[in-house]
């Protein structure tokens, strides 16, 4: 295996270039939203601090769940881009919304959504 062809990622914060992606979108003049998991109860797919960056067209970088609530978070992020107000969202199994976008694992997560000014 002397001529290994494994593609090596950057050695700092591999795969976690969410903020860099957000900055790059912003530099292109796009509106950008940033969602962060700020609290979890029970089993949750991503730990506190996990982030998702979204641009105005709905392009995503990173994640706040295993894919279960990203759609709803993207909608809220776009709404935040429109009115400029941050939002604190909760997703759990007893949430009305959860029947559509709930967490299959039965946990609860709280997500802070803000815009990049």
């Amino acid at each position: 295996m002397t001529n290994t062809t494994i593609k090596t990622p950057p050695t700092t914060g591999a795969l976690d270039n969410i903020l860099e992606q957000a900055a790059a979108w912003r530099a292109e003049g796009r509106k950008v939203g940033l969602a962060t998991v700020v609290r979890t109860w029970g089993s949750s797919p991503r730990p506190v601090g996990s982030q998702l960056a979204v641009d105005e067209a709905g392009a995503m970088a990173g994640s706040v769940s295993g894919g279960c609530v990203e759609g709803a978070v993207v909608d809220e992020a776009r709404a935040a881009m429109a009115d400029g107000k941050p939002r604190l969202l909760e997703f759990n199994v007893s949430n009305e919304e959860a029947w559509e976008v709930g967490l299959a694992c039965g946990g609860t997560i709280e997500v802070f959504v803000e815009t990049l000014e």
Binding site: M1, T4, I6, K7, T8, P9, P10, T11, T12, G13, A14, L15, D16
Partner: peptide
């Protein structure tokens, strides 16, 4: 040889 696979895997897992 093990280092050749461990190094990129560790980088993917977020290690410098």
């Amino acid at each position: 040889h093990i280092g050749q696979v461990l190094a990129p895997m560790a980088a993917l897992a977020g290690y410098a």
